[in-house]
Amino acid sequence: MNTLLKLLSNRWTLGLIVIALVCLVPIVITSKYWMHVFILILIWSIAALSLNLIMGYTGQANLAHGGFFGIGAYATALLMLKLNLGFWPALLLAALITSVVGFLIGLPTLRTKGSYFAIGTLCFNVIVFIAAERWESLTGGARGVIGIPPPSPISLPFGIVVKFSTLSGMFYLSFFLLLVTLFIKYRIVHSLVGRSFMAVRESEDLTSSIGIDTMKTKIISFVTSVFIVSLSGSLYAVYIGFLDPEIASHHVTFEVLLFVVLGGIGTIAGPIIGTIIVTLLGEMLHFLEAFRLVAYGLVLVLVIIFMPQGLMGGIRSLQQKIAARDM
């Protein structure tokens, strides 16, 4: 019993158990509706995790994340439909395109501090939205892009064929990319590079005085972040099979922001928790319509004033309090 408890308290075993449980979901859950909700949660979790990298760990309020999500989604769809590329090359190429755009936008906006970056990226998000809506020959304008095919099946050894046209195939694909994202993020956060990100967040002056190129650090964080959000955009495109300009708008940015803030800015698991809670509540409270959005707003304001580290941060400080009492 004791060893079992010990095993459970180890992060890695706990992680493996969670992974195993999630892998069981498509087998246990038969409802198409809930599978759909879970897949969306996986896709949006990736987006939330990537926003957290630049915003939570590097302290730069990127308000164009929806725009980059949209660029990744549109690029994937158009590469697959117009150039007949397969899903995997399209996924990578779209992420590269998004990264280049991110780099070009980061260069002028990241040179400045705080407010300018937030405003500049928000304006850029609007440009992306307008381009998606008006550049009809490329994006299909307000009608959008339809008929995006699912990734073609891949065959593994022993005659196993993974099909992505099924809900469970899509579920595993999204879960796989979420794990890759988590792995990358974990490695970055626990490295010298991640330490530089957090150093920039705390004080740019001190950080440049100890020989770290703050501009380069911010660019690296930003480009990595938009590379990853492009992956989630690609998943969204092939899963839903249809895109319209709204998917590239700042409303998407705000929603992903809500996931991150509620779950916990600058924590590893927070953005996922936030995505799960908001998505599930959103589905359950759908009938409330606009009142739901008022509630979103209230949650953002209240959380940021009273619990700025979100749910994960709240839990952490609670743990610390308990630990301090035990001592």
């Binding site: 970055i188 590079v193 330490r195």
Partner: peptide, 12 residues
């Protein structure tokens, strides 16, 4: 950190 070289790929 300034006396070291590895970048983000090295970290990942």
């Amino acid at each position: 950190r300034l006396r070291t070289n590895t970048g983000i790929l090295g970290a990942i």
